[in-house]
Simulated assay, not measured.
Amino acid sequence: MLSELGFQEITVRKKDQSETIIQGWGVAEGAERIVFSAYIQAVKPVGWQERVAQR
């Protein structure tokens, strides 16, 4: 999804306290075994607007 929007160098890194964060959401018990909290980093290069508009 991010790459379709013009982002590059996309990285996803799990947060050290991911399980605690998910448990704090108060959603279904055991949700921390299915999803994780993460840092997402990406670069959107110069000229991205023109490339997206051409699609």
Rank of each mutant, 00 (worst) to 15 (best):
A28S: 11
W25T: 05
G6I: 02
I34C: 03
R13V: 13
T11C: 08
K15E: 14
E29C: 00
V35H: 03
P45R: 08
Q54E: 06
V43W: 13
D16C: 10
A28N: 13
P45K: 09
I34L: 12
E9I: 00
Q8E: 15
M1T: 04
P45V: 07
L5Y: 09
F36V: 02
Q23M: 03
Q17M: 10
Q49H: 03
V43M: 13
L5V: 06
Q49N: 00
Q17F: 10
D16L: 14
E32I: 01
I22E: 07
I34F: 14
A42G: 15
G47L: 12
A53S: 04
A53G: 01
Q49V: 02
Q8D: 08
E4Q: 14
V46G: 03
G6E: 01
A42F: 09
V35A: 11
K14N: 09
V27T: 15
R51P: 00
Q49E: 13
F36E: 14
W48C: 01
V46K: 08
E9Q: 15
T20Y: 13
V12S: 14
V46Y: 10
M1H: 12
R13A: 11
S37C: 09
A31C: 14
L2Q: 06
D16V: 09
W25D: 06
A28V: 06
D16S: 13
T11S: 14
A42R: 07
E50S: 09
R51C: 06
E29H: 05
G26V: 06
W48N: 11
E19Y: 08
G6W: 00
R51M: 04
G24H: 06
A42E: 12
K15L: 15
Q23Y: 10
I21S: 05
Q49F: 07
Q54K: 10
Q41C: 13
K14H: 09
M1W: 05
Q23L: 09
R55G: 12
R51T: 04
K44I: 15
G47I: 03
I22H: 03
L2E: 04
E4T: 06
I22S: 05
E29S: 11
Q54S: 05
E19A: 15
D16Y: 07
W25V: 01
Q17T: 01
G6P: 08
K15R: 15
A42P: 07
T20G: 00
T20V: 11
E50G: 04
V46L: 12
R13E: 15
F7K: 01
I21E: 08
R13H: 09
G24Y: 05
W25Y: 06
Q41S: 15
G47R: 01
K14C: 08
F7L: 11
I34Y: 02
E32K: 03
M1A: 11
W48H: 13
F7G: 01
P45T: 12
V43Y: 14
K14A: 14
G30V: 02
D16N: 13
L2W: 04
M1L: 00
G30Y: 04
E19W: 04
V46R: 09
S3M: 03
V46P: 07
K14W: 02
I10Q: 14
E4I: 02
F7E: 00
S3A: 10
K15W: 11
I40D: 12
A28C: 04
L5I: 00
V52D: 02
